[in-house]
Design a binder for these strands. Structure first.
Lengths: 338, 338
DNA sequence: TCCTTCCATGTAATCGATTCCAATCACATG
DNA sequence: CATGTGATTGGAATCGATTACATGGAAGGA
């Protein structure tokens, strides 16, 4: 693989001149530029990004640590982040934490070792040591979707979706359809989205004169298996719930598995709704009512904020809103239309 | 961020000694090692991977260029690749080509610029110039799932799934259920999996005395929209097919969208089957019969082969087999069980 | 014609590691 | 006591770029 000095030799100039041509420095004579460019083309030379990064102390790379790649919400987020970053000539390196704090720490460490310019995180747990260290050390950092609190973290912008409005709409929908004993499969209490969704659900229920009983709050971990387990516990209760709200789409999948395994029907026996909409929800049996996040906008806003930080501009937190997409998993749709 | 010389200064040794401690070189006195390690801990020092890579000419990073992150098959593949690589202390950088040759080229270029140690590709089109150049330049490279032919590419191992057996089983299944006018939504002809699935389907049909008519072969591009379009064309035919086989799961999703939009029913009006099984297929209406690939094994085998190449060992191609998972989208299941 | 100024280019330091080679020292051997 | 051996350690080159500073020559003004 040719290096800059090979190009220099072939073009009969010094490496400095080659470097200037490569970086569009103005003071290079036109014919010299031509000669260098010709040499570059002849050799198929490409600048070594590793060497360049060492010298300039920037990698034009962003790290994205997400909780679970298999969750379509995060895949979509990753995709929009990559698209937005590419527009601005940045690359993205994804680390999949698989909802495991140790893996999250591993990825943050690896990314920091690689000297990425900025870090986009959707934190899994309360306080990964590496992440705190990175934030304190002044690494440009932005939280997406979820965030954590802690000292040194108050200056980290949070790009997220507020689900309260949509959750309230969902509760209204459930009430209108006659559901009274509603339950929630919550995310880990260590995550903000985990807690927030339970809180919003509880407040909305109260507003409608309903209560969220302790044994109708199941602890999940945002993965399918936990949805199955929690649903099993709900259905074994002396008075099982007549509606279940899963705090993410994978737990909803698990819930469906369990409901189906018991020969029960959605929504006749138990209604089901999920946070995070995905294309497949249109085609499940029945189509699942879900709360949709503006994933593309979320990813774009996150990249904008992070790159602002990286390039020394101030960045602010952004909160977008989710919206309810009504389908048939909570009961027949309102008879508003014929 | 402290550098090796800061550690050296604090420990009262030279950078050479620090480097030796960091790389477990045997000839360092125990107490010196302790002092260095203490300094490392005090400063929270982490070696700069960029500098190390420049010097050693290896990044311990693998590139993975996939056709479409939003396709659950590839997400799962990416995940298993990352897991396998991490076991062996390698990182993975994913490039999403989105089924676009230009993006594929962009990612291969970026990864090569970053001097990754090896490249794992599931090629989108026939012959990306950067990819050919990389292969010819001797970059360790392995194809997963799909592959391309071309000079310089014959030494590149291919880790893939052979779908012929499973496709034959699918055709048998369709025949047994009385379907005669079967159609296929094919992948791009430029991809091997695109062509192979059509060929295997055609041969299997012939074996069962059926024919695959030209207008029952729809050109898709492995994305949902094309599934919709092709299905629309099928259903507009004077004699529409009574069974549709989608060459991947996203096109199956598109097909379902279109079928449902027309108020038709699966499988009563038209049967549906897909290549690539995903968790959601259990819960669609009806559950979709699909051909499942051993994704985890595929990813692991690919990483093993690539790292063998990277570390100078020979590597061989691997072919695994897919299997048919019968559900209800082609008709009622065989009455083998009560 | 001589000096100033500017343009184009080269020289060399630098980024943070790794590693070859040389130097030092303690100790053992003859 | 002189010399050889092996264990530790340091000095300095190196990887491939970028960039401050120096240099040489041409052009312009007095």
């Amino acid at each position: 693989m040719p290096a800059i000095k090979d190009v220099a030799r072939r073009a009969g100039v010094s490496v400095a001149t080659v470097s200037r041509v490569l970086n569009d420095h103005p003071s290079v004579r036109a014919d010299t530029r031509e000669r260098v460019l010709a040499a570059v083309a002849d050799l198929g030379y490409r600048p070594n990004a590793v060497a360049r990064s060492l010298r300039t102390d920037q990698t034009r790379t962003l790290g994205l640590v997400i909780s679970d790649v298999l969750n379509p919400f995060f895949t979509e987020l990753a995709r929009s982040v990559e698209d937005a970053a590419r527009e601005l000539d940045y690359s993205v390196v994804i680390g999949n934490a698989d909802e495991r704090p140790d893996l999250q720490d591993h990825h943050v460490r690896t990314l920091m070792d690689r000297r990425i310019d900025g870090l986009l995180v959707s934190p899994t747990d309360g306080g990964s040591p590496m992440m705190l260290a990175a934030a304190r050390a002044g690494t440009p950092m932005v939280f997406v979707d979820r965030w954590i609190e802690g000292e040194g973290l108050d200056r980290v912008p949070v790009i997220r979706t507020d689900g309260r409005g949509a959750i309230r709409a969902l509760v209204a929908h459930l009430c209108a359809l006659g559901h009274r004993r509603v339950a929630i499969i919550a995310g880990p209490a260590a995550t903000t989205t985990g807690r927030e969704r339970v809180d919003a659900f509880r407040s909305a229920l109260r507003e409608f004169g309903l209560e969220l009983y302790e044994d109708h709050i199941g602890q999940g971990d945002f993965q399918a298996d936990s949805g199955r387990r929690v649903t099993a516990r709900f259905l074994d209760l002396p008075h099982p719930p007549d509606a279940i709200f899963a705090a993410d789409n994978l737990m909803a999948l698990g819930a469906m598995d369990e409901i189906r395994a018991r020969g029960l029907r959605v929504p006749a026996d138990v209604a089901l709704a999920a946070f995070d909409d995905i294309p497949w929800f249109v085609h499940t049996d029945p189509p699942i009512t879900a709360i949709a996040q503006p994933t593309g906008a979320l990813g774009r806003a996150a990249v904008t904020a992070l790159i602002d930080l990286v390039e020394g501009r101030p960045a602010e937190s952004v909160t977008l809103s989710a919206r309810l997409v009504t389908r048939r998993s909570c009961g027949e749709p309102e008879r508003s239309k014929p």
